[in-house]
Design a protein around this nucleic acid. Structure first.
Lengths: 234, 234
DNA sequence: CGCGCAATTGAGTTTCGTCAAAATCGGTGG
DNA sequence: CCACCGATTTTGACGAAACTCAATTGCGCG
């Protein structure tokens, strides 16, 4: 796992939320111009490279983040020091929601695929959510989505034999249009599926030999979706 | 798994929320008398026996529930028909939160240990949460707790060898005062820990032989907490 | 007292983890 | 451009853990 890049103070302020490309599904979609005037700290945006740490577990913080593009992993460290990835956040997902009601982040957030992020000050979100019913409901919906994702993670990615888990992971990462999929290090695959690096590698190699996935480049595959779904259903 | 009991319309209306014994940690703790006047449908309460189904996955519903006492399991069914328990709710926990933003329940909720429940109409909660900042924040905190529980479930109860998982489960169920613990069917233990009934039984039997747990009655044990914590840390 | 379900135990098999080695990839510098 | 280095991935051999199938025991309840 690379960890070369660190989050320097590269945030560029004054994102243009009113004309944001993903606004309809962004956190501040329900806000009016008047609402934006109430925010003193500007909404910042930044692009981060793989390996970059957005925040660490236990960090005090005052921001939550929307993932505009790319992929971010949320990691928790176990008592024995090993790490377990408890969620993946991709476009339109919010990470760091917990900072709205807690003082510290619950996970370590690390970029897996180059990601564009927006950053919101928690105080502004807390304040606005009490006056703006749309934002209020949107927040609830995001909590619900996070919880539903967590349940899905447990039932699909942490249950059953290794082949089934890997198939489910690939299907979750695939672009349905192109049937292509960008993967990442085998150690991360293992941390997600709760299997060892070797087992992850073995299963992926076997999928390649059996033609279920075709390698297009470094961690870049074309999937046989139907066949993988058969395995995923198990 | 028993499923003899069904939830008949046994709800007794007009719970006395203002003088509730667990009010300080109940869902409506932040409400004023004036708030209560705004609720047309009374808050109901009921006592349910083990096996009783509170709601099913996919059910349309208009209520969320506080568990006043007892134990409730939240179940999801996998593609192959087997069930996986994704959370346990005990005193002061809320189940069915998702109904605030979705039309259907996300899990099946079944009573494990005789439980007293309070029932809140979703419309009232949604309405009040937009005007009462305390309830608003309380709801957010409950979402966060549910999510944190889910993460904990994954890292503690679904990771590592079977003995470690069983130890973690027992420690989660134990009454720290008496060091006693009420368990349930081995099939439920298996569904929680993602192991088979046989493995669950073997581990528990082994714990008994090694004196880590002493059987006091049917599914009733006294625990050697220190020893179990050593295994749970593993 | 016996019936029936749940729990336990046993034997054999499969899967996965562990440890170790080999191969491959990506990047770097001559 | 090519050779080399380190890191990642793949592969192999072996053992441990858990699953499956089956039989037995134990317990609660009528």
């Amino acid at each position: 796992m690379k960890q070369k890049v660190t989050l320097t103070q590269a945030w560029q302020g004054n994102a243009d939320c009113l004309h944001c490309a993903i606004r309809s599904s962004a956190l501040f979609s329900g806000l009016t111009e008047k609402d934006f005037e109430m925010i003193h700290e500007p909404v910042g945006q930044v692009t981060l490279e793989p390996g970059c740490v957005i925040y660490k577990e236990g960090d005090a913080g005052h921001h939550l983040f929307t993932v505009r593009s790319g992929l971010v992993k949320l990691v928790q460290y176990l008592s024995d020091g090993t790490q377990r990835i408890v969620r993946l956040a991709h476009s339109t997902d919010v990470v760091g929601l917990e900072i709205l009601v807690a003082d510290n982040y619950a996970h370590e957030a690390i970029v897996l695929h180059t990601a564009e992020l927006c950053r919101y000050p928690k105080d502004a979100v807390n304040l606005l959510s009490q006056h703006n019913p749309v934002l209020h409901k949107d927040l609830m919906t995001r909590w619900q989505k996070a919880l539903s994702d967590a349940d899905d993670w447990l039932t699909r990615l942490s249950t059953g034999p290794a082949k089934k888990r890997v198939a489910n992971l690939l299907l979750r990462l695939v672009d349905k249009e192109t049937t292509e999929c960008f993967l990442f290090g085998r150690d991360d695959v293992g941390s997600i599926l709760n299997i060892t690096v070797e087992t992850a590698s073995r299963v992926i190699a076997e999928f390649k030999r059996e033609g279920l996935i075709e390698q297009l480049g470094h961690n870049h595959f074309k999937l046989d979706i139907a066949a993988l779904e058969a395995i995923a259903a198990g």
